[in-house]
Simulated scan of single mutants.
Amino acid sequence: MEENNVPAWRKSSRCGTSTCVEVAKVDDQYLVRDSKNPEAPALSFTQAEWDAFVEGVAAGEFRF
């Protein structure tokens, strides 16, 4: 975990000024949260799950 057990949250580069998702890597987990509600529990993903998500985004699997 980051220093003082506080994850280093990063916002999406496509956020602009609106609410967004934030991501942090802690040990072998990727955490995802809603920036407008940072106190809510974060979703947690393994390295394999995160890799599959990133590959899906790159492949356009989430385009509507």
Score class of each variant (00 low, 15 high):
1 M>I: 06
1 M>F: 09
2 E>Y: 10
3 E>I: 11
4 N>Y: 14
5 N>A: 15
6 V>N: 15
6 V>L: 14
6 V>Q: 15
7 P>Q: 11
7 P>K: 06
9 W>F: 03
10 R>K: 11
10 R>M: 13
10 R>G: 07
11 K>D: 07
11 K>F: 02
12 S>K: 04
12 S>Y: 00
13 S>R: 02
14 R>W: 08
14 R>S: 12
14 R>K: 08
14 R>Q: 12
15 C>Y: 01
15 C>D: 05
16 G>M: 01
17 T>M: 02
17 T>Q: 08
17 T>S: 12
18 S>W: 01
18 S>H: 12
18 S>A: 14
19 T>F: 08
21 V>H: 04
21 V>R: 00
21 V>P: 00
21 V>D: 04
23 V>H: 08
23 V>C: 11
24 A>P: 00
24 A>Q: 04
25 K>G: 02
25 K>L: 10
25 K>R: 15
25 K>Y: 07
26 V>K: 04
26 V>C: 08
27 D>F: 03
28 D>P: 00
29 Q>A: 11
29 Q>C: 03
29 Q>T: 11
29 Q>K: 10
29 Q>D: 12
30 Y>I: 11
30 Y>P: 01
32 V>A: 12
32 V>F: 05
33 R>Y: 04
34 D>C: 05
35 S>M: 05
35 S>C: 04
36 K>D: 08
36 K>C: 06
37 N>H: 11
37 N>T: 13
38 P>N: 10
38 P>H: 05
39 E>V: 08
40 A>G: 10
40 A>C: 10
41 P>A: 15
42 A>N: 09
42 A>M: 03
44 S>D: 02
44 S>P: 04
45 F>S: 05
46 T>Q: 05
46 T>C: 06
46 T>M: 01
47 Q>S: 10
47 Q>A: 14
48 A>D: 13
49 E>K: 04
49 E>M: 06
50 W>N: 03
50 W>K: 00
50 W>M: 10
51 D>F: 00
52 A>S: 15
52 A>M: 09
52 A>V: 05
52 A>R: 05
52 A>E: 12
53 F>W: 03
54 V>L: 12
54 V>S: 11
54 V>G: 07
54 V>I: 13
55 E>F: 02
55 E>V: 11
56 G>V: 11
57 V>H: 03
58 A>I: 02
58 A>H: 12
58 A>Q: 15
59 A>K: 04
59 A>P: 02
59 A>R: 09
60 G>A: 10
60 G>E: 08
60 G>P: 01
61 E>K: 13
61 E>A: 13
61 E>Y: 05
64 F>E: 13
